[in-house]
């Protein structure tokens, strides 16, 4: 049992972290062209609406819920002191998960039944969708079966994840968790690990900077004023457009 714990709760997270960092940086540097959401809306739009919109909003809500619980566990515990607030948090998180699950199931169905979409589907897409489906399902199971997740996440998993990131892994608490929860954790690491090999890279290039850039964009190959002025030296700089 010790080996199991060591592999999945110490080795796996570090392998995932390494693979994620090296993989994404390498892919971004070497094959930037392949960084894309690979949207298939152009080929099928109606079913996409009923799949993509609930899935994305649902998964974003749940993901940021996890992230906040990891980063600020004390605040979550403080919030959960009042039973009504705990119920609100748990119920809304659960609804978020259900919405994401329904959306993803719709997307999966859409992808495997549409002729056009099959042409733009590869194995990695299917593997990722199945993994996410299982992961969300497990998450809902955990939330339903092992109450109250938000509280024990803050007391058990936040310290564990912090210990991982501080390179001092403490797995005693995690090792005693029920198997379903352990599976949910392991699968999270696996998904994290395969990010660079899937279309999930689009999450990393979400265009938030759009909000503060000016609308119009003009790129000059070279600064003509400088070239014409014999008093300035030509600094050698890489073009910004390629």
């Amino acid at each position: 049992m010790n080996a199991f714990n060591n592999i999945f709760f110490i080795a796996l997270p570090y392998a995932a972290l390494l693979m994620f960092l090296v993989g994404t940086i390498y892919r971004y540097k070497a094959t930037k062209f392949k960084f894309s959401t690979l949207s298939s809306q152009f080929l099928e739009t109606k079913k996409l609406y009923w799949g993509s919109v609930p899935f994305h909003w649902g998964i974003l809500f749940v993901f940021f819920g996890h992230l906040i619980a990891f980063l600020f566990p004390s605040y979550i515990l403080l919030w959960n002191q009042v039973p009504v607030r705990l119920a609100i948090l748990e119920v809304s998180a659960f609804i978020g998960g259900v919405v994401a699950l329904i959306g993803l199931a719709g997307l999966f169905y859409r992808r495997i039944t549409n002729d056009r979409l099959r042409k733009v589907t590869n194995y990695m897409d299917l593997i990722l969708e199945v993994l996410l489906l299982v992961q969300i399902f497990l998450g809902l199971w955990v939330a339903y079966g092992f109450r109250w997740g938000s509280s024990w996440f803050a007391t058990v998993l936040s310290p564990y994840l912090t210990s991982i990131f501080t390179f001092n892994p403490q797995i005693d608490a995690v090792a005693m968790l029920p198997f379903v929860i352990q599976l949910h954790i392991i699968l999270a690491f696996v998904i994290f690990m395969i990010i660079p090999f899937t279309r999930l890279v689009h999450v990393l290039v979400f265009p938030l900077s759009y909000l503060w850039r000016p609308y119009q964009k003009v790129i000059w190959y070279w600064d003509r004023k400088k070239v014409r002025n014999p008093n300035t030296s030509w600094d050698i700089h890489r073009p910004r457009n390629n």
Binding site: Q216, K217, V218, I219, N241
Partner: peptide, 8 residues
Amino acid sequence: SGAIYKRG
């Protein structure tokens, strides 16, 4: 993404 631009 800011991928589209006008050449100066």
